[in-house]
Write a protein that binds this DNA or RNA. Structure first.
Ligand code: ZN
Ligand code: ZN
Ligand code: ZN
Ligand code: ZN
Lengths: 161, 161
DNA sequence: AAATAATCGACACTAAGTCTCAACTACTAT
DNA sequence: ATAGTAGTTGAGACTTAGTGTCGATTATTT
């Protein structure tokens, strides 16, 4: 896995440059985050995945590591409506967080890679004198799968009723 | 206050139509929400404000009332990065939640009334087959006050150093 | 005014996240 | 390589937002 390796090295470098030690616990946490890049894991989930890898790790250590990685902008902390913090690798060189599609039926989280907020941010800075550093944009709605499921259920009702 | 009165009546009507009883606790909670329309109160804050009004109210009742009001789309539940739920009256006739400017320095929350996401939502529906029902958009950055404060501090340093 | 189904409030409980502190370890400099 | 040290770890106590329980209460209907 070429890409993961180079990301891994980059992250380790960032940690080192910021004066943090490269402990096995931190390496394993980053490893998990890289492996589950597509997911949006909670601290608890990361904790279990690291523990499953081989040795143990303390939950507090996971929280501390995630805090550091967030400070260094290696990951982004996201909070959807359930109030549980989830973490998202900040891979790309984009300075801004990508968007999310949160399905109200099944709870799935899909990513929207395009930013598309550039014009809006300019308006905000002009009209509100607010210096935008980042954003969080989540669309609430019905995902493709659930919409298709709904359609099936509907035709079932029509057939049977 | 004409506007508050008519909003109050509208909300009470909505509750009644949905089959909920109009208890004094619910009325007081709505009253507080209307009075603090500009704020983004947590359940705890609402609880204290209702209690301060006259009689007591249970915290659980506040949570239950807020849940009902959210279901009926009279209020919107918001979760910023601290993970605490905050509630926002859904006054206007806009079907979509307005946006927020969250200051990273002082924690203030400002509102952005314009929507501006119409085009983006159309793109999302087309490209991702995701049926958008609502959204949450928060810009993280530095508010006007804090930016001015920063400038002052900076010139102080220049003068003194 | 009585019947009743909804609602209330006190309090127990759950769970995400933080704090504490003694033990430990990655790095630095000899 | 070794020792010194500052940073880090993990267990568990703690905090706190939010939920669940249940007997007592009350808004509404008739
Ligand atoms: Zn879905
Ligand atoms: Zn994401
Ligand atoms: Zn500010
Ligand atoms: Zn608002």
């Amino acid at each position: 896995m070429k890409k993961l390796d180079s990301s891994f090295k980059l992250i380790k470098e960032k940690l080192h440059k910021a004066g943090f030690k490269l402990t096995p616990q931190r390496e394993l946490t980053v490893e998990v985050l890289l492996e589950k890049e597509k997911d949006h894991l909670s601290a608890e989930e990361i904790y279990l995945l690291v523990k499953a890898k081989n040795t143990g790790i303390g939950l507090a250590t996971v929280y501390r590591t995630l805090e550091i990685l967030t400070e260094l902008q290696i990951i982004n902390k996201l909070t959807f409506q359930d109030g549980i913090a989830r973490y998202d690798l900040n891979m790309g060189s984009d300075k801004h967080q990508h968007h999310h599609l949160l399905c109200l039926k099944c709870g799935s989280i899909e990513e929207v890679k395009q930013d598309m907020l550039f014009e809006i941010e300019k308006e905000i800075e002009r009209d509100y004198h607010f210096l935008v550093k980042d954003h969080r944009l989540t669309f609430h709605g019905i995902c493709r799968n659930c919409a298709e499921q709904d359609k099936e259920d509907e035709s079932d009702v029509n057939v049977n009723g």
